[in-house]
């Protein structure tokens, strides 16, 4: 029985890196406070492996054959992909991977009726993995990464209830399939409200974002599943806000437990609402079911 020791949600807007220095100080403070808190909790939790659910921005697969979940099984994960690098404006990185856990995840989810795809190559990483990696220096830490790239934008894609069920299966996998003593962290990467590619590219839905962060912190998952519909996310920013489904996977895995957020920032030039959550996951989290 492995231990689920860490769970958090973080946005990955590329502008958090590339335009950070141009943002007002109060906006920078929210970004810094959020990252510092997530890193503090990560260091306290000491996960051996961090499974990162993050949406794929059509970076790895053609629309005609688009997986809902794509596991990266490489021994190392380097990024960002060359075309995305100048856009993000971030440094290069090579994070340690964990082929054994990635293979076990592929096998375990398949056996639990969750269709995932998996590839052994270094996947193409855009802001999805790159921004959390550089903001939290994940490549410089003693933690191995298993990326799971998620379809949250090519219709039809798994809705909040399906993603929550994926998270529940993930918890079972961590509890039953991974070796005793292994410390596992979960990170959901995406959101908050934004509309990449749409006519409302600069639109940020502050009311939605604050509602979502409060809901994440409340631990009320009945409301989460009833109210965080695809329609509501589309209204808050079409094609982008649904990235929060990566957070829903994490919440499905940890169950109803409170979280903490570290402020909220609305900066139009970021083209995305900014806020993060760290959930109170203790060493008994994997045993709760």
């Amino acid at each position: 029985m492995a231990e689920l020791v860490y769970a958090a949600g973080i946005p990955h807007a590329p502008t958090l890196v590339g335009l950070f220095s141009r943002a007002p100080s109060e906006v920078q403070k929210v970004v810094r406070d959020s990252c510092d808190a997530l890193v503090h909790d990560l260091e306290a939790a000491r996960p051996d492996v961090l499974i990162v659910f993050a949406n794929d921005h059509l970076t790895n697969s053609r629309i005609s054959a688009y997986p809902d979940f794509l596991i990266g099984m490489a021994a190392e994960h380097s990024g960002p992909h060359e075309w995305f690098k100048p856009w993000i404006g971030c440094r290069d990185y090579t994070a340690k991977g964990d082929t054994t856990v990635a293979e076990a995840l592929f096998r375990g989810m398949t056996r639990r009726g969750i269709r995932m795809n998996a590839e052994r190559r270094n996947l193409n990483f855009d802001d999805n993995i790159s921004v959390p990696t550089v903001l939290m220096d994940l490549d410089k830490r003693d933690v191995r990464i298993v990326p799971v790239l998620q379809n949250t934008t090519v219709p039809p894609y798994p809705d909040q209830r399906r993603c929550y069920a994926v998270g529940q299966a993930l918890a079972d996998f961590i509890r039953d399939d991974l070796p005793a003593g292994l410390r596992v962290g979960l990170l959901g990467s995406g959101g908050l409200s934004h509309e990449p590619g749409g006519s409302r590219y600069y639109f940020i839905d502050e009311a939605f974002d604050r509602w979502f962060l409060d809901l994440c912190c409340s631990g009320d998952h009945r409301r989460l599943l009833d109210e965080l519909t695809i329609e509501r996310m589309e209204a808050a920013g079409s094609g982008g806000t649904s990235e929060l489904l990566a957070w829903v996977v994490v919440m499905g895995a940890i169950g109803e437990r409170p979280g903490r957020s570290f402020g909220y920032a609305l900066h139009k030039e970021f083209r995305c609402g900014i806020g993060a959550v760290s959930w109170a996951v203790n060493d008994h989290a994997a045993e709760r079911r």
Binding site: I63, Y201, Y202
Partner: peptide, 29 residues
């Protein structure tokens, strides 16, 4: 056309670095 690829096509045409992306967003919108 998928709007996310629309944003990427705009960057391919108008610029893909940090400032080019701003130009691309404005042209797209």
């Amino acid at each position: 056309f998928h709007p996310y690829l629309g944003g990427q096509l705009a960057r391919l045409i108008y610029g893909n670095d940090v400032d080019g992306a701003i130009r691309a967003v404005n042209k797209l919108v």
